[in-house]
Design a protein around this nucleic acid. Sequence first.
DNA 1: ATGCATGCAAATTATTTGCATTTTC
DNA 2: GAAAATGCAAATAATTTGCATGCAT
Lengths: 131, 131
Amino acid sequence: MTPQRELVMETLAANPGHHATADEVWQVVQARYTAINRSTVYRILELLTRHGLVTQSRLGSSVVHYELAHDHAHHHLVCVRCRRVVQLPAADVSTLRKRIFERHGFRLGAGDLTLEGLCVDCAAADGGRRV
Amino acid sequence: MTPQRELVMETLAANPGHHATADEVWQVVQARYTAINRSTVYRILELLTRHGLVTQSRLGSSVVHYELAHDHAHHHLVCVRCRRVVQLPAADVSTLRKRIFERHGFRLGAGDLTLEGLCVDCAAADGGRRV
DNA sequence: ATGCATGCAAATTATTTGCATTTTC
DNA sequence: GAAAATGCAAATAATTTGCATGCAT
């Protein structure tokens, strides 16, 4: 256990439900541990992910986002307009999962699903028309 | 209309349902038009996307895949093991879309959903256990 | 002829890797 | 003191951009 690892963990734990990029984590940690290097953060996040303490998601952009692994699995709804992220409980997806298995023999993973669309506020501002 | 644009279109049209990366398109086109530049292909793909003739998808990796836009909307099931891509008709998602709107006020877009999991074959090879 | 499209090279962004140098156990 | 973790700098990979030139209309 190294101070770098503790700080990365603390940073993720400080904002539960927040999806931080490696670079964001690096910046936050750097405030308290100037010497830390970006690649160290990447390596730690990879390690934590491999051990199941952290989950990765690709929220539509080309950047990977990290968050502390939860007990209750969930997926992500990303608003294409404001980029807000809403959590979607895994249970809501179970019907779809069943149907996909029946029709395609495809076993939907426990892994993160990222679904894009329009959040309540943006839909309202838009007159609720197009997505 | 330029020869480059025609060739990019032809390349995508040659393999309907295939998800090509910009680089793959570039390589194919290059065989018939040596001088074409990668950035030209990127620009053309971006143009075609903006005009709705082509759709982009992020199939889990950090590379963007392109395909000719279809009349019938569909989503993608990507096997995490063999990276095979299965198309999922939009209709299969309609129940989920409805539920998500009722519970979260979130309007799931027509855009591509990419769902990861295990395809039939990989699940079989795996004894159907874990994902 | 005018302007948009292309080619080229260089910049960007996100991430990874080799290697020498600390740390941790 | 051995093994693993870190820092640094350079390498990669995918994509974008500025600018001079060339082709389409």
